[in-house]
Design a protein around this nucleic acid. Sequence first.
DNA 1: GACCGTATCCAAATCGATTTGGGACCGGGT
DNA 2: ACCCGGTCCCAAATCGATTTGGATACGGTC
Lengths: 336, 336
Amino acid sequence: MGADTRRATIVDVAAAAGVSTTTVSHVLTGRRPVAAATKARVEAVVADLDYRANASARHLRTERSGILALVVPDLTNPFNSAMAAGLHETVLPSGYLAVVGEAPEPGAPLSGVLRQLLDRGIDGMVLGRFGASEADIDSVAASGTALVRLGGPLGSGRGDVVRANEVQGMFDIVDHLVHRGYRRIAFADGPAGSSPGGERQRGYEQALRDAGLPVRDDLVVHTAYTREGGVRAAEALLAGPGPIDAIACCNDLIAVGVLDVLRARRIGVPGDIAVTGYDDIEAAELMSPALTTVLNPAREIGRTSARMLLDRLDHGYTGPDRETILAHRIVARDSA
Amino acid sequence: MGADTRRATIVDVAAAAGVSTTTVSHVLTGRRPVAAATKARVEAVVADLDYRANASARHLRTERSGILALVVPDLTNPFNSAMAAGLHETVLPSGYLAVVGEAPEPGAPLSGVLRQLLDRGIDGMVLGRFGASEADIDSVAASGTALVRLGGPLGSGRGDVVRANEVQGMFDIVDHLVHRGYRRIAFADGPAGSSPGGERQRGYEQALRDAGLPVRDDLVVHTAYTREGGVRAAEALLAGPGPIDAIACCNDLIAVGVLDVLRARRIGVPGDIAVTGYDDIEAAELMSPALTTVLNPAREIGRTSARMLLDRLDHGYTGPDRETILAHRIVARDSA
DNA sequence: GACCGTATCCAAATCGATTTGGGACCGGGT
DNA sequence: ACCCGGTCCCAAATCGATTTGGATACGGTC
């Protein structure tokens, strides 16, 4: 317990190497050329003293904190933690630290977490789905922080966007249902107007239209992106107007809730009603029946977001905002 | 795009309030009394200018970074991400930032992530299970960083410890098996000598002894804490010397692998062989059959770790290292 | 009126780095 | 002998906060 010896500073290194701190700094940052012999001597001393620059001092001067943040609504959602892992592993080698924040209520003007991150002067931020309001996004963009959004429209000056092709993903899995012979396909969507619920609904409707099936409003219900939300959605659909033979769910957690209800009512899956999810969380494979779903490469989304931030921060990219779309994959299992 | 207006500094505040920066600092930190009228004036200006102290400058002077870290081997493990969430939500209100790191190979002397965190001068660290070697722990403790370990022995000067009662937890679930009439109970442990495998094995053996059952070495196999590890463990046990009627697994992922094998071989669970896990990951409830397991309150462990760090950092606790033990709970489902 | 305590406030040093604007030295060309 | 262009290095200013050691003013006491 307790710091036994003070950490070496740049002054110590300079003294031991018989040069000025300026020269040490130049050796370290490489912003100005230094004679090979001097450079070698400084580097030897750095290694010997186990010197590492004080991050706060450096960032005070350079106005860069070296911290990137990921803000999501729920860290325990496996999709989000996989994304966080991808972000971490990509930015660490570049010397950045990644912090993760849970933004409880996206309603508040600039919720606590976001405000605190901005106050810290973070260099970049990845804003997860349903994690922030439009006003929040503007605040972040206005603060000069590099910004990557996961989903939402690509607007000028509002950050890069990384997304999976949500429309196509839901289209593909509903198309999969159609090809398996299902015809009265309901859709358990997320809250009205939410992302990625909107995109996925478009994919659902397009698939029906392309198959020549009617698009009926009463076959679409909106609910929370949770297991409990799935329970409510299933109950609503089963109590609904017409018979259905499949339920496409907006994410896996909703599908879990739907399966809970079907199992409790002894409705066969996929015999009586087929069910599909979206995200391919770990549990999807372990459930009974195993869930047919769409895999969005969460970890890869985290990695890609990180690279887009680093592009702006370290590689000097200053061009217009960009959008990267990652491929999804249908994972056909037993539930449909 | 870009910082439209420079952020206000303490100098701006001082000028606008007609006082010195010293006084502003005293108002903000409260380290010295300030006349009520002056204080009110400064606070008004602070609010007006939307002033927030530059974190780097503050930390340069105070030698505190305001950053806490959680290091775990695998972020996508739900147990770890739930812990991370508990840590985050507890430290944020105190103005700390929590970062999460994945330490890939605990073998390396001071693996990259740990080194980088220490270089940053983090104030405190929570070291997850199997996340670091003994040497790592010593390095962290020697650096003067407040330390909380999750598991492992309570040693002097090596940080506080937060743990669930692993011995008791495994004892209870094996006892549960005994009461259900199972007699030849195997144990699929983690790697030999690992934590919490060691503690859980002790609980397993104690439960057998208390029930008057023999403790047989050939009924214990060591494997990785993964689904794949569970597959190997099950194959080894089924090919083993004697017949078994139950497999207690060291964690849920191992149990998932074990169930994979049993399902493939059409061995009934729990009819032919009962299976138990440990951790109660989300998938435990969703599997078929639903997994009987032990719930370690991951989020609460994160919260408690955070509080122990804050005790030392903000509340001036300087007493001896402490250990907090959290209660577990048996979650009886269908697999045993 | 001199002295002392309190209550307030401020000037300047400090934390550890980066960066700017030269200065010193060395050869080579005229 | 002088100048010029490189090369290599350094002194000092700077980032934005905290903290130390007074300075000033005001009352009250003897």
